[in-house]
Amino acid sequence: MARKVLVLGEVRDGSLRNVSFEAVAAGKTAAEGGEVVGVLIGESVSALAQEMIHFGADRVVAVEDEKLKQYTPDGFSQALMAVIESESPEGLIFGHTALGKDLAPKIAAKLGSGLISDVTSLEEAGGNLVFTRPIYSGKAFEKKIVTDGLLFATIRPNNIAPLEKDESRSGDVSSVSAEIKDLRTIIKEVVRKASEGVDLSEAKVIIAGGRGVKSEEGFEPLKELASVLNGAVGASRGACDADYCDYSLQIGQTGKVVTPDLYIACGISGAIQHLAGMSNSKVIVAINKDPEANIFKVADYGIVGDLFEVVPMLTEEFKKLKVNA
């Protein structure tokens, strides 16, 4: 069924985020031959419209207002609702980013529609558009369909491949005016979080502990291994939440993203949030009692065993290696 799909382009520091092009590709699939309309919202964003078109949007609608310089749920929802009113789309695709996560449910509530969040793939199957998304932090997946009303989804970045950029593509760029008023949340300041403690982002070797470390003292063998390898100690969210270590050690979606040469994950189950922060490490070693732990799926080498047995043995072996070297 051909449908008109609006795709929200997301602008950061004056450029379109990659997820915008992935969303266009998802929009193309969702449109099933219908029109893909890019939407840009900001203070001055229409110059970016051509790029959305090059990546597959048929045309672009922009809403520009100085009150839209920064994202606020009120401002952006007013802008978007004006576009929705003028375009009457049958589908909406946003990125599952901080902005998309914040805005999409508000729009869905306004429209009384469903919303399928954090989609990693979509395809037409058996007359339905089927959305796949992780549940239980990626321990399982579900396939969902929309049963009533608007087809609305947010897509997880880096999962749906963008279409090939074609600079010969052209399309209409128009603007929609919206009255942006009564913003109830005002951004006073944006603070970049300063790194504190061990600089995980720069470390060549990281020994990270998870819930399996069991206590603050449980980090000791990891620290010893790290010191032998001149590495830094990191942690999963689980370990931080359990108070085994400080949040500044946290690696993952909301912590630090690291890419050391060697990442040794000890007692880390491998929640998708954690994997997001470390899966680009050059070599990953997993040590975990649970052979089913997700971490083994991204690990180059794995040892199924108790970290309290394995880690001290590793430390000894590396010491020997250093002596012999």
């Binding site: 997946f141 579900e142 396939k143 369909i145 040892i303």
Partner: peptide
């Protein structure tokens, strides 16, 4: 009444992961 419906739940396919070592620890 829900606007969306789950039609299938499945576990992720076992990926060709790296080498899980075997033998004495």
């Amino acid at each position: 009444e829900a606007k969306t419906k789950t039609i299938e739940i499945y576990l992720p396919p076992k990926k060709e992961a790296g080498k899980v070592l075997e033998g004495e620890l």
